[in-house]
């Protein structure tokens, strides 16, 4: 049934006939467009003046109430809105001008294949070959070899300088293992409150409480943030019966003091502080990636991307009843790394 005279596919019908805009045919419409564009530019001018005036006239702490936003800073709003109007006036004006008054008949530009023609290609190849030949690249292998090697190596000094001076990585493995909980002179280290830096008596810790704790040695630290980043500890008191009856629970309890247990606050996943303690479930939750640790079972991971339990800090009390750590962590705290077990 198909007509043999019909082509196999449709043919491009070419550009459709041009439709004139109102401003092309009606002088009044053109005038109107001109006025619109001019008013937009004028808006921009006025807004720029508004910006400058507000900059000097409005006090920086003046408050203003704006619906949907609430009380906000007047200067910020005025500067922003005036700047926006100054810019939008120019933008809308220019585009409206282009749309209404500049020619709107589409223009056709021919394309040409991107590739160069064969002659040009041959010429380029010829030039390259002639150049290589005249430089005697192939006739003098010694030059070729040494030049190649020199070029290959020239970035090395820069690379060595950079890599060698960025930071000393030789201390990495030792430092990742140690914290300022490590006892140096045989004297157990007191646990102190994170902000107030005051020591904590065992009797101060009620069941259900959580203390954010640092070692007392933080007071002498010269690298407070670096030391804190490894030494931050969470101290919780559970009812002794709340610990699991299995080995993990027993270990947790025995490293603690009358149900008070201390765990590293640095997540074993990527190192966020695991601070969210649910005192009813005894779960610790990390706010960054939701790793959940069960305090009653030695902070075993019960949910989330972390693999390892939070390291426990062994604690006891000193003669005055203050909580102390007789030794540092038994394993590196924080995120895993390749040589962690070494």
């Amino acid at each position: 049934m198909s007509d043999p005279r019909l082509p196999a596919t449709f043919e491009n019908p070419g550009l459709p006939p041009h439709v004139h805009r109102a401003a092309d045919t009606d002088p009044r419409a053109a005038k109107r467009a001109e006025r619109q564009v001019a008013s937009l530019f004028t808006l921009s001018i006025l807004s720029t003046i508004g910006f400058v005036v507000s900059y000097f006239a409005v006090k920086s702490d003046t408050e203003a109430f704006i619906p949907f936003i609430g009380t906000t800073n007047l200067l910020n709003v005025l500067l922003g809105v005036f700047l926006a109007l100054a810019l939008l006036g120019i933008g809308f004006g220019a585009v409206h001008w282009a749309k209404t008054l500049m020619p709107d008949e589409e223009v056709v530009e021919e394309r040409h294949p991107i590739r160069s023609d064969d002659e040009t290609r041959a010429k380029a190849v010829g030039l390259l070959e002639a150049g290589a030949e005249s430089a005697q690249l192939n006739r003098r292998p010694l030059l070729k070899a040494t030049a190649g090697t020199a070029l290959g190596l020239f970035a090395l000094p820069l690379g060595v300088q950079l890599a060698g001076s960025l930071g000393n990585p030789t201390k990495a493995l030792d430092e990742l293992k140690s914290t300022i909980w490590d006892v140096k002179d045989g004297k157990p280290i007191r646990l102190v409150r994170d902000v107030e830096r005051t020591p904590i008596k065992a009797a101060d810790v009620s069941i259900g409480a959580v203390f954010h704790v640092l070692p007392e040695t933080i007071k002498e630290s010269h690298h407070v943030l670096e030391d804190k980043a490894k030494a931050a500890v969470l101290l919780m008191r559970l009812h002794p019966n709340d610990f699991a009856a299995d080995d993990l629970g027993k270990k947790a309890k025995s490293w603690g003091y009358e149900g008070i247990v201390a765990y590293s606050k640095i997540c074993t996943h990527v190192g966020c502080p695991v601070g969210l303690y649910e005192q009813q479930t005894h779960h610790l939750l990390c706010p960054c990636h939701q790793s959940t640790f069960d305090v009653t079972r030695d902070c075993e991971v019960i949910f989330g991307p972390a693999k390892r339990p939070l390291p426990q800090l062994k604690i006891t009390v000193d003669a005055e009843g203050y909580l102390v750590a007789p030794q540092g962590f038994a394993e590196p705290v924080g995120p895993s790394y390749w040589e962690r077990k070494k």
Binding site: N168, P169, E175, V270, C272, P335, Y337
Partner: peptide, 26 residues
């Protein structure tokens, strides 16, 4: 802090790269 943990997870060189980037301990 998390980025430091990411770098540490790189096999073999992680801890060294971290120390080089941060110029020592985080």
């Amino acid at each position: 802090r998390a980025a430091e943990g990411f770098i540490r997870s790189v096999p073999i060189v992680g801890s060294y790269v971290s120390y080089m980037m941060f110029g020592g301990a985080f």
